[in-house]
Design a protein around this nucleic acid. Sequence first.
DNA 1: ACCTGAACACCGTTCAAGT
DNA 2: ACCTGAACACCGTTCAAGT
Lengths: 213, 213
Amino acid sequence: MTAAVAFIDDQGLSGLTMRRLGSSLGVEAMSLYRYIPGRQELLDGVVDTIVNQMYDDEEIHQSPQHGWQDFLQRLAHGVRRIALAHPKAFPLVASRPPEAPWLRPPLRNLKWVESFLDGLASEGFSDEAAVAAYRAFTSFLLGHLLLEVSSLGADVGPLDVLEDDSQPSSLADYPRVRRLHGALAEDHSAAEFEMSLENLLERISLLQTEASS
Amino acid sequence: MTAAVAFIDDQGLSGLTMRRLGSSLGVEAMSLYRYIPGRQELLDGVVDTIVNQMYDDEEIHQSPQHGWQDFLQRLAHGVRRIALAHPKAFPLVASRPPEAPWLRPPLRNLKWVESFLDGLASEGFSDEAAVAAYRAFTSFLLGHLLLEVSSLGADVGPLDVLEDDSQPSSLADYPRVRRLHGALAEDHSAAEFEMSLENLLERISLLQTEASS
DNA sequence: ACCTGAACACCGTTCAAGT
DNA sequence: ACCTGAACACCGTTCAAGT
Protein backbone atom coordinates (compact mmCIF):
# COMPACT_ATOMS: atom_id res chain seq x y z
CA MET A 1 0.00 0.00 0.00
CA THR A 2 2.77 2.41 0.93
CA ALA A 3 4.56 1.03 -2.10
CA ALA A 4 1.70 2.32 -4.20
CA VAL A 5 2.01 5.80 -2.69
CA ALA A 6 5.73 5.88 -3.39
CA PHE A 7 5.03 4.68 -6.90
CA ILE A 8 2.59 7.49 -7.59
CA ASP A 9 4.94 10.01 -6.05
CA ASP A 10 7.53 9.43 -8.69
CA GLN A 11 5.71 7.89 -11.61
CA GLY A 12 2.49 9.84 -11.46
CA LEU A 13 -1.00 8.52 -11.14
CA SER A 14 -1.23 7.24 -14.68
CA GLY A 15 2.09 5.47 -14.24
CA LEU A 16 0.56 3.30 -11.57
CA THR A 17 -0.55 0.16 -13.26
CA MET A 18 -1.24 -3.19 -11.74
CA ARG A 19 1.40 -4.80 -13.87
CA ARG A 20 4.04 -2.18 -13.19
CA LEU A 21 3.32 -2.01 -9.48
CA GLY A 22 3.56 -5.75 -9.41
CA SER A 23 6.92 -5.92 -11.10
CA SER A 24 8.24 -3.09 -8.93
CA LEU A 25 7.49 -5.43 -6.04
CA GLY A 26 9.19 -8.32 -7.78
CA VAL A 27 6.00 -10.18 -8.41
CA GLU A 28 3.62 -10.77 -11.29
CA ALA A 29 0.69 -8.37 -11.44
CA MET A 30 -1.81 -11.12 -10.93
CA SER A 31 -0.60 -11.78 -7.41
CA LEU A 32 -1.80 -8.37 -6.30
CA TYR A 33 -5.36 -9.63 -6.52
CA ARG A 34 -4.62 -11.83 -3.51
CA TYR A 35 -4.37 -8.63 -1.44
CA ILE A 36 -6.74 -6.14 -3.01
CA PRO A 37 -9.85 -6.70 -5.10
CA GLY A 38 -8.92 -4.31 -7.89
CA ARG A 39 -7.40 -1.10 -9.04
CA GLN A 40 -10.18 1.11 -7.69
CA GLU A 41 -9.65 -0.25 -4.23
CA LEU A 42 -5.93 0.23 -4.60
CA LEU A 43 -6.53 3.93 -5.19
CA ASP A 44 -8.86 4.08 -2.21
CA GLY A 45 -6.09 2.52 -0.20
CA VAL A 46 -3.68 5.19 -1.35
CA VAL A 47 -6.05 7.91 -0.19
CA ASP A 48 -6.53 6.25 3.16
CA THR A 49 -2.81 5.91 3.61
CA ILE A 50 -2.28 9.62 3.06
CA VAL A 51 -5.21 10.62 5.21
CA ASN A 52 -4.06 8.40 8.04
CA GLN A 53 -0.59 9.82 7.71
CA MET A 54 -2.18 13.15 8.57
CA TYR A 55 -4.24 11.69 11.35
CA ASP A 56 -1.33 9.95 12.99
CA ASP A 57 1.10 12.84 12.84
CA GLU A 58 1.71 13.90 16.42
CA GLU A 59 2.55 17.38 15.32
CA ILE A 60 -0.80 17.77 13.61
CA HIS A 61 -3.33 15.84 15.42
CA GLN A 62 -3.80 16.49 19.09
CA SER A 63 -6.50 18.06 21.14
CA PRO A 64 -6.16 21.79 21.48
CA GLN A 65 -3.68 22.76 24.17
CA HIS A 66 -2.93 26.33 23.28
CA GLY A 67 -6.34 27.41 22.16
CA TRP A 68 -8.36 26.56 19.10
CA GLN A 69 -6.47 28.97 16.90
CA ASP A 70 -3.29 27.06 17.52
CA PHE A 71 -5.20 23.82 17.00
CA LEU A 72 -6.46 24.88 13.58
CA GLN A 73 -3.15 26.42 12.58
CA ARG A 74 -1.36 23.19 13.30
CA LEU A 75 -3.97 21.20 11.48
CA ALA A 76 -3.82 23.42 8.43
CA HIS A 77 -0.05 23.47 8.24
CA GLY A 78 0.25 19.77 8.85
CA VAL A 79 -2.24 18.87 6.17
CA ARG A 80 -0.54 21.23 3.78
CA ARG A 81 2.85 19.71 4.47
CA ILE A 82 1.63 16.23 3.69
CA ALA A 83 -0.35 17.32 0.67
CA LEU A 84 2.68 19.03 -0.80
CA ALA A 85 4.73 15.93 -0.09
CA HIS A 86 2.42 13.93 -2.38
CA PRO A 87 1.32 16.36 -5.07
CA LYS A 88 0.60 13.62 -7.59
CA ALA A 89 -1.52 11.58 -5.21
CA PHE A 90 -3.33 14.30 -3.31
CA PRO A 91 -5.98 15.04 -5.96
CA LEU A 92 -7.26 11.52 -5.37
CA VAL A 93 -8.46 12.67 -1.98
CA ALA A 94 -11.02 14.79 -3.76
CA SER A 95 -11.85 12.48 -6.64
CA ARG A 96 -12.40 9.20 -4.86
CA PRO A 97 -15.96 8.66 -3.66
CA PRO A 98 -16.05 9.69 -0.03
CA GLU A 99 -16.96 7.58 2.95
CA ALA A 100 -19.60 10.11 3.91
CA PRO A 101 -21.06 11.57 0.71
CA TRP A 102 -23.77 13.37 2.62
CA LEU A 103 -21.22 15.50 4.45
CA ARG A 104 -20.73 19.05 3.12
CA PRO A 105 -18.02 19.15 2.06
CA PRO A 106 -17.83 15.38 1.75
CA LEU A 107 -14.81 13.77 3.33
CA ARG A 108 -13.23 10.37 3.28
CA ASN A 109 -12.84 9.64 6.93
CA LEU A 110 -15.30 10.37 9.64
CA LYS A 111 -12.64 9.73 12.25
CA TRP A 112 -11.16 12.98 11.17
CA VAL A 113 -14.38 14.93 11.29
CA GLU A 114 -15.21 13.60 14.70
CA SER A 115 -11.95 14.68 16.23
CA PHE A 116 -12.20 18.05 14.53
CA LEU A 117 -15.60 18.71 16.05
CA ASP A 118 -14.40 17.33 19.33
CA GLY A 119 -11.46 19.68 19.44
CA LEU A 120 -13.62 22.70 18.83
CA ALA A 121 -16.28 21.65 21.30
CA SER A 122 -13.63 21.30 23.98
CA GLU A 123 -12.75 24.91 23.28
CA GLY A 124 -16.26 26.05 23.94
CA PHE A 125 -17.70 26.10 20.44
CA SER A 126 -21.43 25.64 20.21
CA ASP A 127 -22.71 22.95 17.88
CA GLU A 128 -23.70 25.50 15.27
CA ALA A 129 -20.40 27.32 15.45
CA ALA A 130 -18.46 24.07 15.21
CA VAL A 131 -20.36 22.99 12.12
CA ALA A 132 -19.91 26.36 10.48
CA ALA A 133 -16.23 26.27 11.33
CA TYR A 134 -15.94 22.78 9.88
CA ARG A 135 -17.45 23.96 6.63
CA ALA A 136 -15.34 27.08 6.33
CA PHE A 137 -12.14 25.40 7.40
CA THR A 138 -12.29 22.30 5.23
CA SER A 139 -13.48 24.08 2.15
CA PHE A 140 -10.74 26.65 2.46
CA LEU A 141 -8.09 24.07 3.17
CA LEU A 142 -9.00 21.52 0.53
CA GLY A 143 -9.76 24.11 -2.09
CA HIS A 144 -6.50 25.91 -1.59
CA LEU A 145 -4.44 22.73 -1.51
CA LEU A 146 -6.09 21.19 -4.54
CA LEU A 147 -5.07 24.24 -6.52
CA GLU A 148 -1.60 24.51 -5.07
CA VAL A 149 -0.92 20.86 -5.63
CA SER A 150 -2.13 20.98 -9.19
CA SER A 151 0.55 23.51 -10.05
CA LEU A 152 3.09 20.96 -8.89
CA GLY A 153 2.10 17.39 -9.59
CA ALA A 154 0.32 18.02 -12.85
CA ASP A 155 -0.05 14.41 -13.81
CA VAL A 156 -0.08 14.63 -17.53
CA GLY A 157 0.38 11.03 -18.15
CA PRO A 158 3.51 9.59 -19.67
CA LEU A 159 4.10 12.66 -21.74
CA ASP A 160 7.76 12.54 -22.63
CA VAL A 161 9.83 15.47 -21.58
CA LEU A 162 8.41 18.26 -23.63
CA GLU A 163 10.85 20.13 -25.74
CA ASP A 164 11.67 23.60 -24.60
CA ASP A 165 10.73 24.92 -27.99
CA SER A 166 7.63 26.30 -26.33
CA GLN A 167 8.33 29.98 -26.59
CA PRO A 168 6.91 32.16 -23.87
CA SER A 169 3.95 31.41 -26.15
CA SER A 170 3.36 34.56 -28.14
CA LEU A 171 3.57 36.82 -25.17
CA ALA A 172 3.61 39.54 -27.75
CA ASP A 173 -0.16 39.51 -27.96
CA TYR A 174 -0.58 40.22 -24.29
CA PRO A 175 1.17 43.48 -23.46
CA ARG A 176 -0.15 43.71 -19.94
CA VAL A 177 0.87 40.18 -19.08
CA ARG A 178 4.27 40.79 -20.61
CA ARG A 179 4.82 43.95 -18.63
CA LEU A 180 3.88 42.29 -15.36
CA HIS A 181 5.61 39.05 -16.26
CA GLY A 182 8.07 39.31 -13.39
CA ALA A 183 5.51 40.03 -10.71
CA LEU A 184 3.09 37.42 -12.00
CA ALA A 185 5.73 34.73 -11.90
CA GLU A 186 6.63 35.10 -8.26
CA ASP A 187 5.46 32.23 -6.14
CA HIS A 188 3.67 33.52 -3.10
CA SER A 189 1.62 30.46 -2.39
CA ALA A 190 3.02 29.98 1.08
CA ALA A 191 2.46 33.60 2.07
CA GLU A 192 -1.01 33.56 0.57
CA PHE A 193 -1.87 30.41 2.42
CA GLU A 194 -0.81 32.15 5.61
CA MET A 195 -2.84 35.25 4.88
CA SER A 196 -5.98 33.39 3.93
CA LEU A 197 -5.66 31.19 6.96
CA GLU A 198 -5.32 34.24 9.20
CA ASN A 199 -8.37 35.72 7.60
CA LEU A 200 -10.29 32.50 8.01
CA LEU A 201 -9.47 32.22 11.69
CA GLU A 202 -10.73 35.72 12.21
CA ARG A 203 -13.98 34.87 10.53
CA ILE A 204 -14.31 31.79 12.66
CA SER A 205 -13.74 33.76 15.81
CA LEU A 206 -16.65 35.96 14.79
CA LEU A 207 -18.79 32.86 14.31
CA GLN A 208 -17.94 31.71 17.75
CA THR A 209 -18.94 34.86 19.60
CA GLU A 210 -21.90 35.51 17.34
CA ALA A 211 -23.46 32.33 18.60
CA SER A 212 -24.52 34.02 21.81
CA SER A 213 -26.78 36.44 19.98
CA MET B 1 -14.58 18.82 -29.83
CA THR B 2 -17.87 19.89 -28.33
CA ALA B 3 -18.88 16.28 -28.84
CA ALA B 4 -16.08 15.30 -26.49
CA VAL B 5 -17.30 17.72 -23.83
CA ALA B 6 -20.81 16.34 -24.06
CA PHE B 7 -19.39 12.86 -23.87
CA ILE B 8 -17.49 13.58 -20.66
CA ASP B 9 -20.51 15.32 -19.20
CA ASP B 10 -22.51 12.16 -19.22
CA GLN B 11 -20.01 9.34 -19.38
CA GLY B 12 -17.32 10.74 -17.15
CA LEU B 13 -13.71 11.35 -17.97
CA SER B 14 -12.71 7.71 -17.93
CA GLY B 15 -15.62 6.88 -20.20
CA LEU B 16 -14.09 9.01 -22.90
CA THR B 17 -12.13 6.70 -25.07
CA MET B 18 -10.99 7.22 -28.62
CA ARG B 19 -12.92 4.19 -29.74
CA ARG B 20 -16.10 5.09 -27.95
CA LEU B 21 -15.99 8.74 -28.93
CA GLY B 22 -15.46 7.59 -32.46
CA SER B 23 -18.42 5.29 -32.54
CA SER B 24 -20.61 7.90 -30.86
CA LEU B 25 -19.81 10.02 -33.90
CA GLY B 26 -20.61 7.17 -36.24
CA VAL B 27 -17.05 6.68 -37.28
CA GLU B 28 -14.21 4.30 -36.51
CA ALA B 29 -11.87 5.51 -33.79
CA MET B 30 -8.94 5.66 -36.14
CA SER B 31 -10.49 8.46 -38.13
CA LEU B 32 -10.19 10.81 -35.18
CA TYR B 33 -6.47 10.93 -35.76
CA ARG B 34 -7.17 12.91 -38.90
CA TYR B 35 -8.35 15.76 -36.69
CA ILE B 36 -6.33 15.56 -33.51
CA PRO B 37 -2.92 14.07 -32.85
CA GLY B 38 -3.91 12.01 -29.83
CA ARG B 39 -5.87 11.63 -26.67
CA GLN B 40 -3.82 14.12 -24.68
CA GLU B 41 -4.55 16.81 -27.21
CA LEU B 42 -8.20 15.86 -27.17
CA LEU B 43 -8.28 16.58 -23.45
CA ASP B 44 -6.49 19.87 -23.99
CA GLY B 45 -9.16 20.69 -26.53
CA VAL B 46 -11.86 19.94 -24.01
CA VAL B 47 -10.30 22.35 -21.55
CA ASP B 48 -9.97 25.05 -24.17
CA THR B 49 -13.57 24.60 -25.18
CA ILE B 50 -14.75 25.13 -21.64
CA VAL B 51 -12.45 28.03 -20.99
CA ASN B 52 -13.52 29.74 -24.19
CA GLN B 53 -17.11 29.17 -23.27
CA MET B 54 -16.39 31.30 -20.26
CA TYR B 55 -14.51 33.86 -22.23
CA ASP B 56 -17.21 34.27 -24.83
CA ASP B 57 -20.13 34.50 -22.47
CA GLU B 58 -21.48 38.03 -22.80
CA GLU B 59 -22.82 37.90 -19.31
CA ILE B 60 -19.42 37.14 -17.88
CA HIS B 61 -16.83 38.73 -19.90
CA GLN B 62 -17.05 42.43 -20.49
CA SER B 63 -15.06 45.39 -19.36
CA PRO B 64 -16.20 46.82 -16.05
CA GLN B 65 -19.19 49.10 -16.42
CA HIS B 66 -20.49 49.23 -12.93
CA GLY B 67 -17.24 49.24 -11.03
CA TRP B 68 -14.67 46.54 -10.50
CA GLN B 69 -16.69 44.84 -7.79
CA ASP B 70 -19.47 44.18 -10.23
CA PHE B 71 -16.87 43.08 -12.78
CA LEU B 72 -15.38 40.50 -10.44
CA GLN B 73 -18.75 39.38 -9.16
CA ARG B 74 -19.94 38.66 -12.66
CA LEU B 75 -16.72 36.90 -13.50
CA ALA B 76 -16.89 34.71 -10.41
CA HIS B 77 -20.51 33.78 -10.86
CA GLY B 78 -20.13 33.14 -14.54
CA VAL B 79 -17.15 30.89 -14.10
CA ARG B 80 -18.92 29.05 -11.34
CA ARG B 81 -22.00 28.52 -13.46
CA ILE B 82 -20.00 26.96 -16.26
CA ALA B 83 -17.85 24.91 -13.92
CA LEU B 84 -20.93 23.45 -12.28
CA ALA B 85 -22.39 22.73 -15.69
CA HIS B 86 -19.41 20.45 -16.43
CA PRO B 87 -18.45 18.93 -13.12
CA LYS B 88 -16.83 15.91 -14.67
CA ALA B 89 -14.70 17.91 -17.07
CA PHE B 90 -13.78 20.89 -14.94
CA PRO B 91 -10.99 19.20 -12.96
CA LEU B 92 -9.11 18.92 -16.24
CA VAL B 93 -8.67 22.67 -16.16
CA ALA B 94 -6.36 22.22 -13.20
CA SER B 95 -4.67 19.02 -14.24
CA ARG B 96 -3.72 19.74 -17.83
CA PRO B 97 -0.35 21.41 -18.21
CA PRO B 98 -1.00 25.13 -18.47
CA GLU B 99 -0.13 27.42 -21.33
CA ALA B 100 1.78 29.63 -18.93
CA PRO B 101 3.36 27.42 -16.30
CA TRP B 102 5.34 30.32 -14.88
CA LEU B 103 2.18 32.16 -13.89
CA ARG B 104 1.17 31.90 -10.21
CA PRO B 105 -1.34 30.40 -10.14
CA PRO B 106 -0.71 28.91 -13.57
CA LEU B 107 -3.51 29.24 -16.03
CA ARG B 108 -4.34 27.81 -19.39
CA ASN B 109 -5.13 30.90 -21.36
CA LEU B 110 -3.27 34.14 -21.28
CA LYS B 111 -6.11 35.81 -23.15
CA TRP B 112 -8.04 35.51 -19.97
CA VAL B 113 -5.33 36.91 -17.73
CA GLU B 114 -4.77 39.81 -20.03
CA SER B 115 -8.37 40.91 -20.02
CA PHE B 116 -8.57 40.44 -16.27
CA LEU B 117 -5.64 42.75 -15.69
CA ASP B 118 -6.99 45.11 -18.27
CA GLY B 119 -10.32 45.35 -16.55
CA LEU B 120 -8.77 46.15 -13.21
CA ALA B 121 -6.36 48.67 -14.66
CA SER B 122 -9.23 50.51 -16.28
CA GLU B 123 -10.71 50.79 -12.81
CA GLY B 124 -7.65 52.49 -11.47
CA PHE B 125 -5.75 49.54 -10.02
CA SER B 126 -2.00 49.95 -9.83
CA ASP B 127 0.13 47.23 -11.34
CA GLU B 128 0.94 45.79 -7.95
CA ALA B 129 -2.65 45.84 -6.79
CA ALA B 130 -3.83 44.23 -10.02
CA VAL B 131 -1.32 41.41 -9.69
CA ALA B 132 -2.20 40.83 -6.05
CA ALA B 133 -5.87 40.86 -6.96
CA TYR B 134 -5.23 38.35 -9.74
CA ARG B 135 -3.55 36.02 -7.33
CA ALA B 136 -6.17 36.27 -4.63
CA PHE B 137 -9.10 36.09 -7.02
CA THR B 138 -7.99 33.15 -9.13
CA SER B 139 -6.76 31.07 -6.25
CA PHE B 140 -9.99 31.60 -4.37
CA LEU B 141 -12.13 30.92 -7.39
CA LEU B 142 -10.33 27.87 -8.72
CA GLY B 143 -9.74 26.40 -5.31
CA HIS B 144 -13.34 26.75 -4.28
CA LEU B 145 -14.70 25.41 -7.55
CA LEU B 146 -12.34 22.45 -7.71
CA LEU B 147 -13.66 21.36 -4.36
CA GLU B 148 -17.29 22.08 -5.10
CA VAL B 149 -17.14 20.28 -8.39
CA SER B 150 -15.46 17.25 -6.88
CA SER B 151 -18.45 16.69 -4.64
CA LEU B 152 -20.57 16.46 -7.77
CA GLY B 153 -18.79 14.90 -10.71
CA ALA B 154 -16.71 12.44 -8.75
CA ASP B 155 -15.46 10.52 -11.73
CA VAL B 156 -14.91 7.13 -10.23
CA GLY B 157 -14.55 5.33 -13.43
CA PRO B 158 -17.07 2.83 -14.70
CA LEU B 159 -17.97 1.73 -11.24
CA ASP B 160 -21.35 0.13 -11.55
CA VAL B 161 -24.10 1.55 -9.45
CA LEU B 162 -23.01 0.76 -5.96
CA GLU B 163 -25.48 -1.09 -3.90
CA ASP B 164 -27.15 0.87 -1.17
CA ASP B 165 -25.95 -1.67 1.34
CA SER B 166 -23.52 0.97 2.50
CA GLN B 167 -24.94 1.74 5.90
CA PRO B 168 -24.41 5.22 7.22
CA SER B 169 -21.05 3.48 7.74
CA SER B 170 -20.84 2.74 11.40
CA LEU B 171 -21.93 6.17 12.45
CA ALA B 172 -22.15 4.63 15.86
CA ASP B 173 -18.45 5.19 16.45
CA TYR B 174 -18.74 8.90 15.93
CA PRO B 175 -21.22 10.32 18.39
CA ARG B 176 -20.49 13.93 17.61
CA VAL B 177 -20.87 13.43 13.90
CA ARG B 178 -24.06 11.50 14.47
CA ARG B 179 -25.53 14.19 16.64
CA LEU B 180 -24.76 16.92 14.13
CA HIS B 181 -25.63 14.73 11.18
CA GLY B 182 -28.47 16.96 10.09
CA ALA B 183 -26.54 20.20 10.19
CA LEU B 184 -23.47 18.70 8.56
CA ALA B 185 -25.49 17.41 5.66
CA GLU B 186 -26.97 20.72 4.62
CA ASP B 187 -25.54 22.03 1.41
CA HIS B 188 -24.50 25.62 1.84
CA SER B 189 -22.00 25.75 -0.95
CA ALA B 190 -23.77 28.54 -2.80
CA ALA B 191 -24.11 30.68 0.30
CA GLU B 192 -20.53 29.99 1.27
CA PHE B 193 -19.33 30.92 -2.15
CA GLU B 194 -21.16 34.19 -1.78
CA MET B 195 -19.73 34.90 1.65
CA SER B 196 -16.18 34.07 0.69
CA LEU B 197 -16.48 36.15 -2.44
CA GLU B 198 -17.75 39.10 -0.43
CA ASN B 199 -14.87 38.70 1.94
CA LEU B 200 -12.42 38.46 -0.90
CA LEU B 201 -13.69 41.63 -2.54
CA GLU B 202 -13.26 43.45 0.72
CA ARG B 203 -9.71 42.30 0.98
CA ILE B 204 -9.07 43.37 -2.57
CA SER B 205 -10.49 46.80 -1.91
CA LEU B 206 -7.97 47.15 0.89
CA LEU B 207 -5.20 46.20 -1.47
CA GLN B 208 -6.29 48.84 -3.86
CA THR B 209 -6.28 51.74 -1.45
CA GLU B 210 -3.19 50.51 0.38
CA ALA B 211 -1.25 51.02 -2.78
CA SER B 212 -1.10 54.75 -2.18
CA SER B 213 0.79 54.36 1.09
C1' DA C 1 -9.30 13.64 -49.32
C1' DC C 2 -11.26 10.83 -46.04
C1' DC C 3 -12.12 6.35 -43.79
C1' DT C 4 -11.04 1.42 -42.53
C1' DG C 5 -8.83 -3.26 -41.01
C1' DA C 6 -5.38 -5.36 -39.20
C1' DA C 7 -1.74 -5.09 -36.19
C1' DC C 8 1.21 -3.82 -31.96
C1' DA C 9 2.05 -2.89 -27.32
C1' DC C 10 -0.19 -2.12 -23.38
C1' DC C 11 -4.15 -2.30 -19.90
C1' DG C 12 -7.39 -4.72 -15.84
C1' DT C 13 -9.14 -8.95 -14.49
C1' DT C 14 -10.26 -14.10 -14.27
C1' DC C 15 -9.13 -18.70 -13.62
C1' DA C 16 -7.22 -23.09 -13.98
C1' DA C 17 -2.93 -24.82 -12.99
C1' DG C 18 1.43 -25.08 -10.73
C1' DT C 19 4.57 -25.19 -6.16
C1' DA D 1 -1.28 -20.78 1.08
C1' DC D 2 0.76 -18.24 -2.39
C1' DC D 3 2.20 -17.36 -7.19
C1' DT D 4 2.00 -17.92 -12.39
C1' DG D 5 0.59 -18.42 -17.56
C1' DA D 6 -2.58 -18.08 -20.63
C1' DA D 7 -6.60 -15.94 -21.94
C1' DC D 8 -10.33 -12.20 -22.64
C1' DA D 9 -11.98 -7.77 -23.48
C1' DC D 10 -10.54 -3.44 -23.79
C1' DC D 11 -7.17 0.55 -24.55
C1' DG D 12 -4.13 4.20 -27.71
C1' DT D 13 -1.77 4.51 -31.86
C1' DT D 14 0.33 3.38 -36.56
C1' DC D 15 0.05 2.34 -41.22
C1' DA D 16 -0.85 0.25 -45.45
C1' DA D 17 -4.78 -0.26 -48.01
C1' DG D 18 -9.28 0.83 -49.64
C1' DT D 19 -12.99 4.37 -51.77
